[in-house]
Amino acid sequence: MLRKAFPLVFWLLVWAACYRAVGQDLLLASPVQVFRRFAFVAEASFWRCVGMSLWRTAAAYGLGVIIACGLAVVCHASKLLDEVISPALLVVRATPVASFIILALVWLSSSNVPVLAGVLMVVPVVFANVREGIQSTDRQLLEMAQVFGWSRWKTWRRIVIPTVLPTFVAACQACVGLCFKATIAAEVIGVPKNAIGTQLYNAKIYLETDALLAWTLVVIILSMVLERLLKAAFERGLKRVHHI
């Protein structure tokens, strides 16, 4: 227990030492000031912001996974579409998300732009893994299915999907944190109503360093919780399909 608490205590002490060294609340708030700020968890507005940001993340994540899987299947079926879509997704992956956010603000409402930012983070990663998973399906098993006269759906359900599942799950796990952070970043730029990103933006504008750090801690905690929850859910699902 003590050993587990040691890193936390160590970094809190480093933080406190830095606060003392800097000596200006405007530049760096103390751990005590930040924890005092956590009183905002008792306010309804805090939960509205957290709820809406999580809702946008969930929407972006769900949409992103569905679009990525759909594109991977389409690209597997058509070489021509693959040649069109795969390079486009490589470009999306390489483009800074902020560029998309600024561009999208011209077209979309500030509340929807974070969803788009999250989708753009998820799609290329999940697409690449699912595509690779489909391509790595054991040819011998596919031939067995063909000889035994299995339908296309049965072949996908019994062979392709179980093959793809581990790489799909790995991509989904890797993406959840990225998606959440991209959504928050888009909220900071777009400043929609009821959003963690908007609170971060306001803290910056009003020079409330303690609030900025408190909301940042909220993002870190939520990101870790989301990753843990999804990891547990995916591992449970994977165990049902693969006996591991």
Binding site: Q140, L141, E143, V147, F148, R158, P162, V241, H242
Partner: peptide, 17 residues
Amino acid sequence: TRFSCHFQENRLLPWYT
């Protein structure tokens, strides 16, 4: 014509009993 085949390799689905 319906086929069934016992291949040189076993070709069993590893994720099923």
